[in-house]
Write a protein that binds this DNA or RNA. Sequence first.
DNA 1: CCGGTTCAGATGACACTGTCAACTGTATGA
DNA 2: TCATACAGTTGACAGTGTCATCTGAACCGG
Lengths: 218, 218
Amino acid sequence: MGVMTTRAESAAATRRALLDAAAELLDLGGPEAVTLREVGARAGVTRGAPYRHFTGKDSLLTAVAAECWERIGDQVHALRADPALSASEKLRGALRALIDVGRNQPHLYQVLFRRRANLPGQLGDGMDRLRRQLCGPEGDPAVADRAAERFQDEFLAVVAALAGERNARHYGALLLAGAHGIAGMELSGHLDMDKWHTSADELVDTLVRMVTDAGEMT
Amino acid sequence: MGVMTTRAESAAATRRALLDAAAELLDLGGPEAVTLREVGARAGVTRGAPYRHFTGKDSLLTAVAAECWERIGDQVHALRADPALSASEKLRGALRALIDVGRNQPHLYQVLFRRRANLPGQLGDGMDRLRRQLCGPEGDPAVADRAAERFQDEFLAVVAALAGERNARHYGALLLAGAHGIAGMELSGHLDMDKWHTSADELVDTLVRMVTDAGEMT
DNA sequence: CCGGTTCAGATGACACTGTCAACTGTATGA
DNA sequence: TCATACAGTTGACAGTGTCATCTGAACCGG
């Protein structure tokens, strides 16, 4: 907690500041508003500095997304450990953890579900492998993927506790897709109360009830 | 079909060419690849020409999205009129109409569900109203919204034929959100077969079966 | 047939972006 | 102590969206 002097500490601090600035700009005006120049300025450095911590703008945004995946992953993990909540309450909480991101940070939410770079990459550029090895401790997209997968695993565990191991995966996919769809439609303004006579919250409740009933039937 | 000479015809032709070029570029490399210069070049005009037909790049992309909404709206309409299909087959077809856009034109799909401009706009800029009045026959976002709503109405009719008027709206919203979520997760690479032990098609079948069963129960 | 008008399109310019190469200075470690 | 690694700076470049201005030909009232 002392005054930071070592170079490693200082570098870590700027990296953090860059991530925070990027996240803030993303919330304010979307990916277009995340300008490396402005990010640098808010972090107290200049436009070129981010390239010492990320391979580029895309890498920076991916890192922000990764932190969000980790955050909601932790959130669901905590939910899962809470003894005061019933199984279906935990499920509702997990679904809302995702949807709330869409509500509170819509632009960030869209970055979470961005089209991934070509996964196969068997050959790729060759250049890519080298870049990742040189730049970060680990390739950024890989980190984001791991974080996303962690969230999905936590989510899966919640579903399994309610619907049983057997159907957990199928239901899990359906529920996650359902929540993602609800969040996406609300976010894009296509979930109009006047048209559908229902709300995102009601739809989430329906999802929860659906799997709860099915779980009891087994 | 004769040689076009009148100015109105020529202008309409370039407008069409601009839309086609934009759609093609969008498919190839996403919104970032849709460059007004390249769009103009492919349409046989120069960079400034699109501004005679659209208020800007955003307006152009919105128009492309509107045409897609119309297309799948027509598709569902045709489905609805097909006497050879059962009610649940029609529903499956409607869901797949949307999902197939996500599969075949992923970038276009994301434009369909873009975050809408601030809807309230009671006061807005004041400038906006003026611009819309001057530029197109109608404001572009309004056109896209109408086209999207048309698709939703067609979809709603398909659901109503299966689940009854009473629950049509609630189920409709749930199904549409489900399909949107499935498409979105598949598109973003988050629907991994190894993890979920299921596929987009299976999930769609589950959705259809769900509402079919519920419809029979009433 | 004619002259002015309208308007699709061309062009020049501007501010701004992501990205890289080259450079600088300082903490680090032998 | 001194060479080195490396976070950060700076200059430059190719694109980008957007606007103001200009041009020329189709239009239309007389």
